[in-house]
């Protein structure tokens, strides 16, 4: 039996609720709006928040791109693409410039986003204060009172222990000078791309049932101290082995035969595009 699903899988009532939450999220940048996360044919914690946002937004004229940790072709990205394609018929692309709707897990593409594009990020842990405060009621109060001493203390303790801030991905940010927000586990390298972004960024946490947003042209500052400034990852002296790119976020890989480490662009579509543009040797 073949079930005829509604366009974009979700029923219209579910979309309506997600849409109302999304609009409030845009109006209150960085604030986590609760919503009734729906059951989906993929498990919670596998991108259901992002997926629900995408499904509530997508229309016939969209061009979709789905990335999983920089890759267009990993299992998670392909499964999500297939689900969306089967229930909407919307074409998917790898080219960042061609996409109108981009759902991403843990990366913001290397190609700068522009007006007319919309970035949806999948979020596993939307609460930046959860590490030191397990109670949701309490973290809501802390956000309400803009009491972020704990967030600062967390970074301070890392400096005391390790002499530097030890966050890798998901380094907390201050949005519009009001809310401390988890930018989703994007590398610190991508944090500055959120600041005054040209595209609207929506973040969805399906398991934790939260939607939040960073509107375009909104101040997003990574938390740091005056004497210990924010330091994104950098790859000095390294370039991508495949396309030669520098100043991009790279994966470190190990060649066990040659016993050497090498670097490669993390954003696969960006890398491929650069390689295709290069003349054949």
């Amino acid at each position: 039996m073949r079930i005829q699903y509604n366009f974009a899988f979700l029923d219209e009532g579910s979309k309506r609720e997600i849409r109302r939450a999304t609009l409030k999220a845009i109006a209150i940048p960085g604030y986590q709006v609760p919503f009734a996360s729906r059951e989906l044919p993929i498990g919670r914690g596998w991108g259901t928040g992002g997926l629900q946002l995408t499904l509530s937004l997508i229309g016939k004229s969209d061009v979709l791109k789905v990335i999983d940790q920089g890759s267009d072709e990993s299992v998670n990205a392909v499964s999500i693409k297939k689900l969306i394609d089967k229930t909407t018929g919307v074409p998917a692309t790898d080219a960042t410039e061609a996409a109108t709707l981009i759902q991403s897990r843990h990366r913001i593409p290397e190609v700068p986003l522009r007006t007319g594009q919309l970035l949806v990020l999948q979020v596993p842990m939307p609460e930046p204060l959860r590490m030191y405060e397990p109670s949701e009621l309490e973290t809501k109060r802390l956000h309400g009172e803009k009491d972020y001493s704990g967030a600062w203390l967390m970074l301070f303790e890392q400096i005391m222990k390790y002499r530097s801030v030890s966050t890798g991905a998901d380094h907390p940010v201050m949005v519009n000078d009001r809310y401390v927000m988890a930018p989703s586990p994007i590398p610190k390298f991508d944090n500055p791309k959120m600041n005054y972004s040209e595209a609207l960024i929506l973040l969805g946490a399906g398991r934790e049932k939260k939607i939040y947003a960073v509107p375009p042209y909104t101040q997003v500052v990574s938390l740091a101290f005056e004497d210990v400034p924010f330091e994104p990852e950098s790859f000095p002296g390294h370039s991508c082995r495949q396309c030669g790119a520098e100043d991009v976020f790279m994966d470190e890989l190990y060649d066990s035969e040659k016993e050497e480490t090498y670097y490669q662009c993390n954003d696969t579509s960006y890398c491929l595009q650069r390689m295709n543009a290069q003349p054949l040797v």
Binding site: L23, I26, A27, L57, I58, G59, L200, P216
Partner: peptide, 12 residues
């Protein structure tokens, strides 16, 4: 859906 995307643009 089309109207909603217009409203998203207007709100953001």
């Amino acid at each position: 859906q089309i109207a909603y995307r217009q409203l998203v643009d207007a709100m953001s």
